[in-house]
């Protein structure tokens, strides 16, 4: 599985929606239930899935799914 596919799997579990199809330009506005409160669950699940750790400042700079994915790929 590519990182994108693994990330998509995490999104589907976290937001409890099997229809989610990730695109790099997607933001929180495009995913139902993705808000500041669910964001930590998402980040924790991503860190677990990929076995990586983000630092706080990185997390605050992500603007969309593409930014998140680039950061994941740089840590793999």
């Amino acid at each position: 599985m590519t990182p994108m596919e693994r990330l998509e799997k995490v999104f589907r579990v976290v937001f409890d929606d099997d229809e989610i199809a990730l695109r790099p330009e997607m933001t929180a506005n495009d995913v139902d239930g993705w808000d500041s409160l669910s964001h930590t669950n998402l980040i924790l699940s991503v860190e677990k899935e990929f076995g990586i750790k983000f630092n706080q400042r990185e997390l605050l700079t992500f603007k969309n799914v593409g930014d998140l994915l680039r950061s994941i790929e740089s840590k793999l």
Partner: peptide, 21 residues
């Protein structure tokens, strides 16, 4: 306050999930 206080705190305390939030 959500962007500049809540989010940094919540992300800092994320390993302590429900209590951190």
């Amino acid at each position: 306050i959500l962007d500049y206080i809540f989010m940094p705190l919540q992300l800092m305390w994320r390993n302590w999930p429900s209590w951190g939030t």
